[in-house]
Simulated assay, not measured.
Amino acid sequence: MPFIVYLRVSTQRQGQSGLGLEAQREAVEQYAARVSEPILGTFTEVESGAQKDRPELAAALKECRRTKSVLLIARLDRLSRSLSFIAQLLEAGVEIRAADMPEANRLMLQMLAVFAEHERRLISERTRAALAAAKTRGVELGVHGKRLAQAHRDEATVFARSLATIVLPLAAQKMSLRRIADELNARGLVSRDGGRWHPSSVTRLLSRLKEAH
């Protein structure tokens, strides 16, 4: 039977950079080539594993039913660590295959989901226990995160100030955010994330400059 591929990453940044996606794509393509079955389509989801409402997965399952294909994933954990969610998928009337464990049948998939959910609960419980113990010892929680956030803000301020002599005169001329963005792009200047300027990124830049003064 042919395959419909479902890929998933947990964050928007991973989706944009390809982190995780390329490894999954390579795994499913190698498996399909090994069993000499075609891939009829690929659906990619950028979403949290805890989120059950996944439009791309729903579309992939629908396409599997329409083309009588097998849903192919790279690894079981790319679907979910929720037993109830895996059970729901297994009841969808679509054969599911994981490239890292193609011999897994429906029962094995359910068992793996049970172990995965158990592991997730253990990790959550250990994390809560560690935080509670640290708080009891008087450790200030979140200090490292606060330092990183402050460093991020400082870097953003330095970047904003480097463009102040260009952006502030444009804003003083009552230019729209769109026109300022177009002007920055025309000059070949990149935004802080290395991309093109948009009204939203100009707004953040002006806000940062205002806070700096």
Rank of each mutant, 00 (worst) to 15 (best):
D53L: 06
R25G: 05
A58M: 09
M111V: 12
E119M: 03
G15H: 13
L141K: 06
R81D: 03
E22Q: 14
M108V: 14
G93W: 10
K62H: 12
L57Y: 03
V143A: 14
R78N: 08
S124H: 02
A133Q: 14
R81P: 05
E140W: 06
A132Y: 00
A104R: 01
E56K: 11
F43C: 04
L21F: 13
L131T: 08
A58S: 12
R81S: 06
E119N: 07
L61Y: 03
K135L: 10
V70E: 09
A50K: 15
L21Y: 12
S17G: 09
G142W: 07
K62N: 12
A87L: 15
L90T: 02
M101T: 14
E26S: 12
Q110M: 12
V143N: 00
V94D: 05
F43I: 01
A27H: 09
G18V: 08
A149R: 09
S124I: 06
L109V: 05
A116I: 08
A116D: 03
R106L: 09
T136L: 14
A134G: 08
R147L: 10
L109G: 05
A92F: 02
S82R: 12
V94M: 03
E47W: 00
L71W: 03
A92W: 00
S36P: 07
R137P: 01
